[in-house]
Design a protein around this nucleic acid. Structure first.
Lengths: 252, 252
DNA sequence: CAGTGGTCTAGACCACCAG
DNA sequence: TGGTGGTCTAGACCACTGT
């Protein structure tokens, strides 16, 4: 057995070691991030971790309990511990897929790809993505329909270096959001919402009546420490609402 | 000493007792909710809880550690454990005070109370608050200014039974939001955001140009199991944005 | 110095679940 | 029945804070 910070000075302990429970948490969390463990996969039981990491069961238990609290895993007495479904993240007004949302309402989602081209950053787009002029990027324009009614115009700029295949994606099958979260771990998201009068092109693509305002969400996402995507999501003001609800949890 | 579910059948244990760590958590959490403990107050140390609740130190430790994770308390080795500052709640697009927001931007907040009257629910307002016709409620209309520029028209309906003094409040000093969260514990919040063309009255109160759209947030709040407040927060589209940013935390 | 939280151990009993 | 998680104990060493 190994008494922490008490045993003979035989091992390579760097004095201020990382706590054992954190080592276990990281090892599992990292395996999820690297893709070695996917949703539904089984992870070692407490007693297996006891053997693997040479810790007491309470320490293994703490690691798994905290991973569960964080929503990384789910546990069931008598069955085991498993990687959880990816978090809805939904702290706020939908980071979710518009396709999923439409389907949840029991309707049919459809997308029309107006354009998806590789470009070089000009003055405007370089500023949006905070990159140098001439940086390679993709520029996609997609209209999303709910039962043949246009509900979102998505105009997006994506760093080509982080998503080299973006130009080849079939965005009538999967959304850019879906694709990006799959290939690049989402680190940070920023949303800004404003009301605006649509320009002529937007009006046409969204089949908006004259004088009808639009709701625009500007969404920026960061991955691997860099701003990788800038999107304008424009919705018809007369048939779209963003919504969010929160129950205050007292944690007891 | 007391070995859990192991000692002599002397006590009144109802077979499926609440875990000890939860009992401790609740006792502290409840004291906060009742106001017996306020932000900054010291709470018993682990060893004091060991004595008070007749548990082992690991159990007291777990209770306090989870309260800390939940943001209820803050702990410092060598000093003690203290009630935390009230959570910003800010999971989403500002549940915060518009007054605080304006001040954080370094500007001056000012409010003009256009009206604050007690009414009986008519067909429309009864539906908004999901109450019977004739229910007593307050109806306030307030314009919020940032440096003398109107940035929000707040039209709010509040259940009179839950906030009997609402009509006497001076909303040039404190916001209705502030008042309500003080007198009624917030249980649930719902936000809906949409773009709209303001009507004449709104245009005038917000000093909006013709053809300028507005961003409207509809906010409903629940307390003690009931819908207690319905508010329309209308912002000029050309000089207001809602925003939110999230860093994804990997919890390790 | 005594008190605090941070971490850990090597046991233990229990309820649950599958074969 | 054996494995799983859920909970608990009675110790322990450590680093940190204040007096």
């Amino acid at each position: 057995m190994k008494l922490q910070r008490h045993d003979a000075p035989d091992d390579d302990a760097p004095k201020q070691a990382i706590p054992h429970y954190k080592v276990i948490k990281r090892s599992i969390s990292d395996a999820v991030k690297k893709g070695d463990l996917k949703a539904g996969d089984r992870i070692p039981s407490e007693s297996e971790l006891v053997a693997q990491f040479n810790v007491s069961r309470m320490t293994a238990n703490r690691a798994l309990r905290e991973l569960q609290a964080a929503g990384i895993i789910v546990r069931h007495a008598g069955k085991g511990s498993f990687i959880a479904e990816p978090a809805p993240i939904g702290q706020l007004i939908e980071i979710r897929n518009i396709a999923d949302e439409v389907r949840e309402r029991g309707h049919v989602w459809r997308a029309r790809v107006v354009g998806n081209d590789e470009e070089r950053a000009d003055a405007e787009t370089a500023a949006l993505l905070q990159v140098a002029l001439g940086t390679r990027l993709f520029h996609s324009v997609i209209v999303h329909y709910e039962d043949d009614m246009p509900i979102q115009l998505e105009e997006r700029f994506v760093l080509a270096s982080i998503a080299p295949d973006y130009g080849q994606c079939d965005f009538t099958q999967t959304t850019p959001n879906e694709y990006l979260t799959r290939i690049a771990p989402l680190e940070r998201v920023e949303h800004r919402v404003s009301a605006m009068m649509p320009d002529e092109r937007t009006r046409a693509l969204l089949a908006l009546a004259e004088g009808e305002p639009a709701l625009r969400m500007t969404r920026r996402t960061w991955s691997r420490g860099r701003l990788v995507s800038h999107a304008w999501l424009t919705h018809p003001g007369n048939r779209f609402e963003l919504s969010a609800a929160f129950a205050i949890d007292d944690h007891c």
